[in-house]
Write a protein that binds this DNA or RNA. Sequence first.
DNA 1: AGACGTACCTGACCGC
DNA 2: TGCGGTCAGGTACGTC
Length: 270
Amino acid sequence: MPELPEVETICNDLEKIKNKKISKTFRSDKKMRFESSLDLQGLKNAEVTKISRRARYILINFDNDKTLIIHLGMSGRISLKNSFDKLKHDHFACQFSDGSWLIFNDPRRFGFVDLIKTKDENEHKMLKKLGVEPLSKDFDASHLLKKFEKKSMNIKTSLMDNEVVVGVGNIYANESLFDSKISPLRPANKISKKEAELIVSSIKKTLEKAIESKGSSINDYVDASGNLGNFQNNFKVYGRDKEKCLICKDAVRKITQNGRSTFYCPSCQK
DNA sequence: AGACGTACCTGACCGC
DNA sequence: TGCGGTCAGGTACGTC
């Protein structure tokens, strides 16, 4: 699934549907990540006023004070097309008055679509506990150190904790730690102020570069218009088990931490 | 409160 | 060609 850069890319692409009015809707009868209150009636004749992103959630605001929340889970995709063919795993779709369609497809169904009142956005079960945005000013070394104070958990898993900072998934946690030369095995509460500063700047740098490259096309990731991202060509450690470290030429190592793959260079990352 | 395992799903891929 | 096992980018929840 898309991490933050991919979701950001999709949101930028979704600007195309701004000011469009919904004429038709569709939802599959498959159960998604959780039982959503998606009420298709609430979308009838609604006009898109704003597209935004919070963590990995896509928020589409309408002129009737409703907000559509979309999360892509691990395998979700949004596409904009001129026709709707009800392909396997299409779970939600809406047609606009110009005839175009927005389609949400998600084979693994870890994602979801929900419709809420715009004013309740911050109270939504999935949004209210989220930590700071990694690209905001609020995400800095002192924030990180405070969050890490009581965490004996390893730093890599800690960075993926949504209450610490949002939008840093497995790939970018690995890449950012490589960039900052910090070992993923270090307990979070043993990170110094200087190291925290390094990590923060590496995360921002890595995410910004990935957004510039329009995300990563792991497997079949494409943005809403079907364009492939190309940040995956810039991975320095992710998926490079046993390959030479780009800095020191020692072998990149793959381990498992809390059930997820971690890639790092034991020589460079201390 | 924090750590940790598990569950939710399908599909791709690998070895036999 | 087919089968079984393993793995995948996320997140919430239960239990200790």
